[in-house]
Design a protein around this nucleic acid. Structure first.
Lengths: 365, 365
DNA sequence: CCGTCCAGCATGAACGTTAATGTCCGAGCA
DNA sequence: TGCTCGGACATTAACGTTCATGCTGGACGG
């Protein structure tokens, strides 16, 4: 089954064994016509016998396409990105593409090196969650003709195809839901990163508050510092949110609800609240973001915004496939998928805010 | 910066522009000697000017090495594997290797295709979490000389290098801890998969029980069915464990402690217990496995076995690097990293079992 | 019987790089 | 002066495919 010296069998080996030309063997195996059925069967049998495996690098060198997607992700430990990886890998594999994965961990330097590496590898296309520090690495990729789809975070300057979650809508729905439950003062707990997803969620929060005529005093947007270390990318740290939440709870006036940027932060908040003797949702409502697998099973179960990870991943892969095929698709250049609010116990029942609202029914608007 | 027709610049372009031979340009850029300093500077400047990017497929074709790791994982949504991906990618990148990722989702067919794909791509080596249905795909990979390291699940027949968690020890420590807290009847809740990691954990459980002289009646090992769908790989489902736990709680005699196979299952168990009006740890202790980021923040916080994900990933990468380098390393062929028990509230305080134990102090052993 | 045509295969070149030799020329030395 | 030696580059081949084109023989029609 194996040639001496550990070398693999090549088309030439098969050709020599059958007294055929290399080209004939190639065409026979790749199913092209112009080959007699008898010869084709012979070639296939010999290839099977010696365990022939085509060398895709040699093939790629001449065809120009490596049949590979580059996938650039900031952090696989983020459950949303983990699902995206699964979803995209599945779609890619279904179309005979391999996946070249790079983790940037929110580092612009890693990102630049990733783009360079994709360029070297002659990937057929790239799906990128950009760090959003600079658009240059991906501009370069597009300039040499590598189709690139931006995922979850857009870089509008580039004019590339983009698919992501409608974070603005998510932030809006989360906030509007809290308001509909009677919350009047609402606070946002978000990670401290300069990315559009977070900015969009905050924009959605502001829109909901403004529409409801509610005030957003200073300190309504609370930032949770991002912990990083020089090793592999970390999952979100509830601990960081816990500490920030503790500081928040020392403030004079307690908000009616807290909208957090991800469900891990809700965990930290839960603990801080419990330590302060505060009940969710009675004393304070909590709305999460991401609907991570644990969120339905917290006590109280967490109302949260569910992200369409699978759909976003599939669309990203499809967009890239279309772009590679070259056919201009009928799809919009930018695509935002709406997240859905999952109502659970952390905003259920008659909350303090709702009771207060009822008590004040007699008073004018 | 770009050649007409979207084609990239090649060594030949630079050679033509400078009236040099292709080889000279190649050697100048790759830093080999035998090139005058003046010429080298000239070549470098020209390469920089036109934005030259080497074609790694052409290079790989002639060198025989693609400078690529194949990483075969069952499910990125498993936080342990997500961390492994990060860790391995980081290590690979540090040594100028790219990562070709395949997701098998516990499917033997996917696994066979993955091995075939790695073979085609001429990866320099592979790190594999095998499905453990058949060793053949990976046997084939090794047979053609691709160094392969098994990760987390061994295939002893192959005699490949292996690094993973010591699951037997993990199961032992979890169980022994429960016993030390006074538990006498202990039940295991494990996923229904035919893999060694689970079998090992159960073996550790049995050893601890046997050492303590405790009985393991029928029904001590409870299996949670694995939900699968034909789409992307799913995270663990607490819901499945919840349903199994409900059935368990209807049984006549309640165990003192439950050792669960992963922290997500503990979530489902928590809910089932709460619905039955049972308190953790007072009525029943719970010990998890994995120390997922949420586990410290549950209420009560979850005692669990922390897995050395980062260390395992790094060792796997290092093993592969050594194997690729060819130098027989001093490391053992098989390497098991010990997990550590993280004691938290789900086994804290004076439990029902402990109180009962104290009440029975007078009675003989 | 000869020319045509086409199926079936062979030949040669190309993809972009690295590796193994070849060639030239100037410096150094007897 | 003639010879050697070695630095600096050129030339050629090779990696394993695919693509474009060339060749051959037999079937077929006039």
């Amino acid at each position: 089954m194996r040639r001496a010296g550990g070398r693999r069998h090549t088309l030439r080996d098969i050709a020599a064994a059958l007294n055929l030309s290399v080209n004939t063997v190639s065409r026979a195996l790749s199913g092209k016509d112009g080959i007699g059925e008898k010869t084709r069967a012979l070639v296939r049998a010999e290839a099977e016998r010696v365990g022939y495996v085509p060398n895709s690098m040699a093939r790629s060198l001449v065809t120009g396409s490596a049949m590979t997607f580059g996938l650039v992700i900031t952090n696989p430990s983020n459950p949303f990105y983990a699902q995206l990886i699964s979803s995209i890998e599945l779609r890619a594999r279904a179309h005979d593409y391999s996946l070249l994965l790079t983790v940037t961990d929110e580092s612009a330097e890693n990102e630049a090196r990733a783009a360079e590496s994709l360029l070297r590898s002659s990937v057929s296309g790239a799906i990128v969650v950009p760090v959003q520090a600079s658009a240059d690495p991906w501009r370069r990729l597009g300039a040499v003709g590598v189709p690139t789809v931006l995922l979850n975070r857009d870089l509008p300057d580039l004019g590339y195809r983009f698919v992501g979650t409608d974070n603005e809508l998510g932030g809006y729905r989360a906030t509007a839901h809290a308001i509909s439950r009677g919350a009047r003062s609402i606070v946002v707990l978000e990670e401290d990163l300069p990315i559009t997803t977070i900015a969009d969620r905050i924009a959605g929060y502001r829109r909901a508050m403004t529409e409801a005529g509610l005030a957003m005093p200073r300190g309504s947007i609370i930032r949770v510092p991002t912990r990083r270390h020089d090793q592999a990318a970390l999952p979100w740290q509830p601990q960081q949110a816990y500490q920030v939440a503790r500081r928040m709870l020392r403030r004079a006036r307690l908000p009616d609800a807290v909208v957090v940027g991800n469900d891990y932060f809700a965990l930290g908040l839960y603990r801080a609240l419990a330590e302060h003797g505060l009940k969710v949702p009675d004393d304070l409502m909590v709305i999460g973001f991401g609907d991570h697998p644990f969120s339905a099973f917290l006590s109280p179960s967490l109302t949260t915004v569910r992200l369409p990870a699978e759909e976003v991943g599939e669309i990203a892969a499809d967009l890239l496939l279309e772009e590679i095929a070259g056919g201009r698709s009928a799809r919009p250049l930018k695509q935002l998928i709406a997240p859905t609010l999952v109502e659970r116990d952390s905003t259920a029942g008659a909350s303090r805010a709702e009771r207060r609202g009822q008590a004040g029914d007699a008073s004018p608007a």
